[in-house]
């Protein structure tokens, strides 16, 4: 579904070239939920933007469905960290969720139905007429997620979506994502700095190194499809996997290869 082939990104600062991402290569199969973690500043957001077609790579490429990404790909939705700034305050919730659907050639009734369904799935049923700024942070992020799934993408890219949200809300939203993923069969690439979250959510966790960034490790999460905030997180298997990821990140920070 998504293939990242030797992608790299350099920046020019005061005439000097800094390599943020050296070369990354990995694949995400259709229907997978993959998490990407790494030390601060390793370029997670840069990677996501290149996959989303919002930033051009310096070398290598990202391919969605075999086609090189050279602008935002079709059937791809993005959920940003800053939910407050990604929703449009001059539109009500319903209009916000509906906006990306407008170019899909659907009738108004079809759009409305998708919006209602998406809001129901994120537990915001009936809130079409509410203004985004009347909602709490967690609910606003749900609206952004609703907007993404109403679009019925095949690939969902999420850039640290729960970093700005409180712990309890974060837990609810994590479960929401797993639920939606299980139901709708979307391919999800989830960027986070939270190690626990990455293990809890993903089927695989990709660990990035420090800049110039490469793929350090790939941890296979064999925790099974049914996960629970309390039970799964307190299981020994979880602790072991978390330890593995944590160790990789510490090594990455120390600059070990």
């Amino acid at each position: 579904m998504l293939e990242v082939a030797g992608i790299g990104r350099d920046y020019r600062v005061d005439g000097e070239v800094h390599t943020a991402i050296d070369a990354l290569t990995f694949q995400v199969a259709e229907g997978e939920l993959v998490c990407v973690v790494g030390p601060s500043g390793c370029g997670k957001t840069t990677l996501l933007r290149m996959c989303a077609g919002l930033l051009a790579p310096t070398r290598g490429a990202a391919l969605v469905d075999g086609r090189e990404v050279d602008g935002p790909p079709e059937d791809t939705a993005v959920v940003f960290q800053e939910y407050g700034r990604s929703l449009f305050p001059w539109m009500r919730v319903g209009a916000n969720v509906e906006l990306p659907l407008k170019r899909l050639g659907l009738t108004r009734a079809q759009r409305r139905e998708r919006v209602a369904e998406a809001l129901r799935l994120v537990d915001l049923e009936g809130k079409e007429r509410v203004w985004p700024w009347q909602l709490s942070g967690g609910m606003q992020q749900r609206v952004a997620i609703a907007r993404a799934i109403a679009f019925r993408p095949r690939l969902l890219l999420m850039d640290e979506p729960f970093a700005a949200v409180d712990a309890q809300t974060r837990a609810d939203l994590e479960d929401l994502i797993r639920d939606l993923w299980a139901r709708l069969g979307i391919t999800v690439v989830f960027i986070t700095h939270d190690i626990d979250e990455s293990v809890y959510l993903g089927q695989r966790v990709l660990v990035l190194s420090s800049p110039p960034t490469t793929l350090r490790a790939e941890v296979h999460i064999g925790l099974g499809p049914e996960r629970d905030q309390l039970e799964t997180r307190s299981s020994p298997a979880f602790a072991k996997l978390r330890g593995q990821v944590w160790a990789e990140i510490q090594a990455a920070k120390r600059g070990e290869t």
């Binding site: 989303a52 077609g53 919002l54 602008g71 935002p72 079709e74 791809t76 939705a77 993005v78 940003f80 800053e82 700034r85 990604s86 449009f88 001059w90 539109m91 906006l99 990306p100 407008k102 170019r103 679009f151």
Partner: peptide, 25 residues
């Protein structure tokens, strides 16, 4: 810029980006 990124990511197109996002913003 986050709003503009959102518009770009969903491929809203220049005209709709202008009328639905830039102008109201």
């Amino acid at each position: 810029p986050v709003q503009l990124d959102t518009a770009a990511a969903y491929r809203l197109g220049r005209f709709r980006t202008l009328t639905a996002i830039v102008l109201p913003g």
